[in-house]
Design a protein around this nucleic acid. Structure first.
Length: 883
RNA sequence: GGGGAAUUAGCUCAGCUGGCUAGAGUGCUUGCUUGACAUGCAAGAAGUCAGUGGUUCGAGUCCACUAUUUCCCACCA
């Protein structure tokens, strides 16, 4: 007897120790190894803005499962970890902290002072994040940890910027962009979140010059009228045709603006006349270009009105709006105020309402880059799982616009563009240029702006492997095998990695994109700080263990779908861990140090041994298939069911008589099989529940090294025995039947009963003989007696009808006739409905002719079986009712 | 305006390419201190697979429409 495990599963007592064991042995380390096939995943680098949440835990668990699976399969696995500097998000946080702790602003401390604080922040949170990932069990190669703002990544960013610039794919221009007045930076289109809101639609009339006429326009943002430079109408609009070419007077500013015709204007919408503000509306901007209209920007960087706004200069944009409406009203130019639902753009980091405005920015030209990225998905070089996401990806890329990549921030990669202070020349270069190619001046100033944070994450799959150097890692591990990420960052990240990888590596960055959903709270709401409904994964690990958390996240989750997180499910997961723990304890308590070989026991293996071994092979095959197809939830569910229902509930119980018996050979067969199956169970479960499987593994004598590096099991066809499985099904079915009778008849568990078996077929008899010991140990049977003539059965016995026979329990005084009739009637109804169903199928000519032969045969077999059983039941009912 | 997803037991969800009597966890009912586990064991009740059509020998699964919920995308001022 080996008794080295405590009675209850206590993850805290071993998880940290196990993780250290893995680290000390270098099991996570990836090497370039030409003798092995590579398998690589890059971790979506978590933002250093804070601590990890359940969404990360899900994302990381899925990756760890895949990596561990492949590692066991013998691949050279690289899970490349790292963190993201998250330019704008982190800058917002650092600014907040600075204000709170020191009462200082960015301007107070200056660029250098700010960056100093930001790096401090990064050191702090970078460490926290890594610690949290370790707690969850992630087997990343920590020796390769990277940061998007480290030296290597920065070098890659500069290189990419320069190469794109030289290719003409990056340009600087004055365009309309999204401006966040709070972060005081430009934003790309996807960094703006649109929300429907109720707002006002102000109808304003503009006087026509040299006329008594007015033209009425409608706007949701009256303050932008300060920058109006035209009025546009549809050229086909009969109402306004006569005004085209005339001049209107812009109220409040008293500026003369032309009335122009443009197809863009919708006759049906609003008044059919549109005020044109090229500097503050993307459509107006386009119209302005078409008609050579001047651009008048009326806002400062905090969105207050600038000197172009006349008497409103200095006012906040909403204050100005109020005043403008009031002034218009006083002038009698405000015609109407209507309520209207319209969409408002907000900054994705601070929720401030974004202003579109014209500004000098850097852009990436997207058309040429998008094309091959579209093709990569179209011809399946990149496959989305589930597939439906390729539509989303394609739609986005097909409608892509140029990407504004400059940000008026400090925390990030500074743009490698230098401006000659003596002429207007721009030089894009790896380092500060010494001489202006145009005027010869040596006086340069680097662009103040930094790059969009996604510019650097786009390079992650190759920048982390050493690009632009031609490293052996890059050669060996690129392209990565699968990218695991949430659907919410397909646009931000997946798309950009795709076109960057294709452009600079001439190959896709990943072959599969395994998409998961968001983790929501029990009510289905997004977890967020402001709602206070976030769950800290580390608290869960402390309370339930990392394995229970991982189990909870993987089960009940299918690709691409959100999951609701119910704390109660953690109990179930923990209970499963405890179950496995105790099953192992049972096995260990019944082992000796002596090693048992297969040859020693092979002639002693009985029906139960052969059954569980056969079933194991089936499970191995199915689970492996599921894993290969990214069906991780299914794989885990099947492993769980096998362990609990088949191994624990049936097989372990079936070994007890032999383990407690005196026949040493029979005992050894059970010990051998228990151990063999346990070993395989631990392997199958390890990717999902790495800690408990490792802890158990190392406590079983004879299990070599660590389960983390054990070979993934391969299903052995030779060990699959359909006949045995069928026999065992019959025995288990009979046992359930007897248990059911005993429960319904309220037979006390301690009361053993004789079993009288009548069998119509020889094979059924054989099976019952083989299962005799299990009827005794699992169904409370004292002895089995076969009868050839039903007349010998006492009339007060209770019957269980099985395939090919009838089992009688003579319970004498305990029998409740009515109850027994009721029970059998239920049985009868069930059989009748089954027979009806089977007959329906078999009498259908189409089914018999077109369905696969084995299915038809199966139905025929069933028909015979059920009809036999029904006959027996009817007979029995007749006997009872005559009493 | 366009696109996607969801709708299966009281609750939370699986159900992969159409083929056993539709499953699990949890909750519920009943009985168990059975020498691994009460974080457990055994037995049980519980489903019109949202609705309507269609394809098929066969539909929870495929197609169309409808309803409800939900997410994403979009420049209608």
């Amino acid at each position: 007897m080996i008794d080295n495990l405590p009675k209850n599963y206590d993850p805290k007592s071993f998880e940290d120790r196990i993780y250290k064991h893995w680290m000390d042995n270098g099991y996570f380390k990836a090497e370039v190894n030409p003798d092995k096939k590579p398998f690589s995943i890059v971790l979506p680098p978590p933002n250093i803005t804070g601590e990890l949440h359940l969404g990360h835990a899900l994302d990381h668990t899925l990756q760890d499962v895949l990596i561990r699976f492949k590692r066991m399969q013998g691949f050279e696995t690289l899970w490349q970890p790292g963190t993201d500097h998250a330019s704008i998000a982190t800058e917002v946080k650092v600014v907040e902290r600075m204000k709170q702790d020191e009462g200082l602003t960015k301007q107070d401390v200056g660029r250098e002072g700010f960056l100093e604080r930001a790096w401090k922040w990064r050191d702090e949170y970078g460490r926290v994040i890594v610690d949290q990932m370790k707690k969850i069990g992630n087997s990343c190669d920590w020796s390769r940890e990277r940061f998007t703002l480290d030296e290597g990544c920065s070098k890659a960013v500069t290189e990419v910027f320069i190469r794109l610039y030289e290719k003409g794919l990056i340009y600087r221009g004055n365009r309309i962009i999204n401006w966040c007045p709070d972060c005081k930076t430009s934003l790309s289109d996807i960094e703006v979140e649109h929300e429907e809101r109720m707002g006002n639609f102000w109808h304003i009339k503009y006087p026509i010059k040299d006329s008594d006429e007015f033209v009425e326009i409608a706007t949701t943002r009256p303050e932008t009228m300060l920058g109006d430079t035209a009025i546009a109408v549809n050229p086909e609009d009969e109402r306004y045709k006569h005004l085209i070419g005339k001049t209107a007077i812009l109220p409040l500013m008293n500026r003369e603006i032309p009335i122009i015709a443009d197809e863009y204007v919708d006759l049906e919408f609003g008044t059919g006349a549109v005020k044109i503000t090229p500097s503050h509306d993307p459509n107006d901007f386009e119209i302005g270009l078409r008609h050579n209209l001047p651009q008048i920007n009326v806002m400062k960087e905090d969105a207050s009105i600038n000197s172009n706004g006349g008497k409103y200069a200095g006012m906040d944009r909403y204050e100005a709006r109020k005043q403008i409406v009031k002034d218009l009203e006083e002038l009698g130019l405000l015609v109407d105020i209507k309520e209207r639902n319209h969409s408002v753009g907000q900054c994705y980091r601070c929720d401030t309402i974004v202003e579109p405005l014209t500004s000098d920015q850097w852009f990436v030209k997207m058309e040429d880059l998008a094309k091959p990225a579209i093709e990569a998905v179209e011809n399946s070089k990149i496959k989305f799982i589930p597939q439906r996401f390729d539509k989303i990806y394609l739609h986005w890329l097909e409608n892509i616009k140029d990407w504004c990549v400059s940000r008026q921030l400090w925390w990030g990669h500074r743009i490698p563009a230098y401006y000659c202070q003596d002429c207007d020349e721009i030089v894009v270069s790896r380092e500060t240029p010494s001489e202006c190619p145009k005027c010869g001046s040596g006086d340069f100033k680097q662009d103040e702006d930094v790059l969009d944070t996604w510019f650097s994450s786009a390079l992650w799959p190759f920048s982390t492997l050493g690009w632009p150097e031609k490293t052996k890692e890059l050669e060996y591990f690129y392209p990565t095998d699968v990218l695991v990420t949430g659907y919410d960052i397909i646009f931000f990240w997946v798309v950009r990695m795709a076109f960057s990888g294709i452009e600079f590596m001439k190959d896709v960055p990943f072959k599969h994109v395994f998409v998961h959903g968001l983790v929501r709270d029990a009510q289905g709401r997004k977890m967020s700080k402001s709602l206070g409904n976030g769950v800290d994964p580390i608290e869960i690990v402390d309370e339930y263990g990392a394995d229970a958390l991982r189990f909870t996240l993987v089960t009940g989750n299918s690709p691409g779908n959100d999951i609701r997180f119910h704390m109660e499910r953690l109990d179930a997961s923990r209970n499963f861990a405890n179950k496995l723990w105790n099953a192992t304890r049972f096995v260990l308590m019944n082992l000796t140090d002596e090693e048992i070989s297969y040859d020693e026991v092979k002639t002693e293996l009985n029906i139960a041994d052969k059954w569980i071994v056969s079933r194991l092979q089936g499970v191995i095959k199915e689970v492996t298939d599921n894993m290969e197809k990214f069906e991780l939830g299914l794989a885990l569910q099947k492993t769980h069911d096998f362990i609990w229902n088949e191994y624990c509930d049936w097989y372990i119980e079936m070994t007890k008589t032999r383990l407690y018996g005196t026949d040493i050979n029979r005992k050894k067969a059970a010990q051998y099989t228990l151990t063999y199956v346990l070993e395989n169970i631990l392997k199958l479960l390890h990717p999902f529940m790495p800690f408990i499987t490792e802890e158990i593994w190392q406590n079983v004598p004879g299990f070599k090294d660590s389960v983390i590096i054990a070979d993934w099991p391969v299903s052995d066809e030779k060990l699959i025995d359909v006949e045995i499985e069928r026999s065992m099904e019959l025995i288990m079915d009979a046992i359930r039947n007897i248990r059911n009778i005993r429960a319904e008849m309220n037979v006390v568990p301690s009361r053993k009963a004789r079993l009288l078996a009548w069998t119509g077929r020889e094979d059924t008899k054989d099976i019952i003989v083989k299962g005799e010991e299990y009827f005794k140990s699992l169904a409370g049977i004292s002895e089995i007696e076969f009868v050839s003539n039903k007349e010998e059965i006492p009339s007060d016995a209770v019957a269980a009808v099985i395939d090919g026979g009838e089992l009688f329990l003579p319970l004498e005084e305990l029998i409740d006739l009515e109850k027994e009739i009721e029970r059998l009637s239920k049985e009868k109804e069930k059989l009748e409905s089954e027979i009806k169903r089977v007959n329906g199928k078999l009498s259908n000519k189409g089914f018999v002719e077109k369905a696969p032969a084995h299915l038809v045969d199966e139905e025929r077999d069933k028909k015979v079986k059920y009809e036999e059983m029904l006959e027996t039941v009817l007979e029995r009912l007749k006997t009872l009712e005559s009493k």
